[in-house]
Design a protein around this nucleic acid. Structure first.
Lengths: 181, 181
DNA sequence: TAACGGTGTGTACGCTCGTACGCATGCCAT
DNA sequence: ATGGCATGCGTACGAGCGTACACACCGTTA
């Protein structure tokens, strides 16, 4: 009967959901798997999140906000003095080549792409997209360019993740150069 | 006891799998749902495809080959005389705006993106990617451009499908123009 | 013609799942 | 202080799942 009053429980459940998706993919997400990961009884997860969609929404929102967002993290690693292309190539390589970051990126796309079949996730996906565009606009000074850049980077990252092929720095640089000077 | 000898059964099971994924998404794929859609007993699907992954692989391969491929269909609708940008804008709009084509595209991405968590699908995803690049190279005469184009189109289509936002012809045209003349 | 083996069929087992529901607990407004 | 109520807990039910397996069928080959 421990932990009878646990104000952070809801939050811990969301954290557990994220880690479950990260480790096992969205298919592995269930009330039970999350309950086990969060070390709470089953009834607790169903109480806080009536349906799995609700939990998924909370998880996606959390991944897309706060200081752990990829947007924020990207911005932290981009040096405004450096040419944008150089920074992006470095960042993308980091995303794909580093084991930890790779699984983080995979997690993000796992959640992001879930919107393909779940209409309720679409507004959140759209908001994320806008955030990315807004961030890149600060560097490109041009929203159209930023928009193109986001699409291109999405496509590139997905290709790398889906095919499992190695990161080809020069090819990526050449590709990005076509959109930004 | 009808249909005791049914040489096309395996093929029909694959077709049924594709239509199940198309209607219910990959989550809806199970030996049982496929058996029902193909109108064969459960044991028949497990006989021809021991695991769901095997069935998924067969489905993905079928979607990516033959005259019904999107690659082939795209090429059929592209007029070599017309500027590539114009043709692509028209094609993309068709993909997203027409109900039938939209669900077809969603099906393809559903299967394609499944490779994110299933290593066995990655070679097929890679092959598909190469086919797309090869096709576009016939128009751009330049593989690097084609490669960029594929990434960009993937990103664009996914954004449209994920956010459910309407197709903005001029914006898409502007985006594509950055990569091809 | 006889036996072999690929194919088709039906059923059963054990598991996980979402969901529902009754009860316990103790904060908080009254 | 007390009663309402949000929260926490445990259990149960029915459904769907992958898988396994025994048996039926019949073309092929010997």
């Amino acid at each position: 009967m421990a932990r009878r009053y646990d104000p952070d429980r809801r939050q811990r459940i969301v954290d557990a959901a994220i880690s479950v998706v990260s480790e096992r993919g969205i298919d592995g997400l269930s009330h039970r798997s999350v309950a086990a990961a969060a070390d709470v009884p089953l009834g607790s997860t169903t109480y806080h999140f009536a349906t799995l969609d609700d939990l998924l929404i909370a998880a996606l929102q959390q991944v897309n906000s706060g200081p752990t967002t990829s947007v924020a993290s990207w911005e932290r690693h981009l040096d405004p003095a450096e040419p944008l292309v150089d920074g992006l190539v470095r960042l993308l390589e980091h995303c794909v080549a580093t084991t930890g970051d790779r699984s983080r990126v995979r997690l993000e796309y796992d959640l992001y792409l879930a919107a393909l079949r779940r209409e309720r996730l679409q507004p959140i996906a759209a908001a994320w997209l806008d955030e990315m565009v807004e961030m890149f606009t600060r560097y490109t000074k041009d929203e159209a360019t930023a928009r193109t850049l986001v699409a291109l980077i999405d496509g590139l990252l997905l290709q790398l993740l889906l095919t499992g092929r190695p990161f080809d720095r020069e090819q990526v640089r050449a590709t990005l150069s076509r959109v930004i000077g």
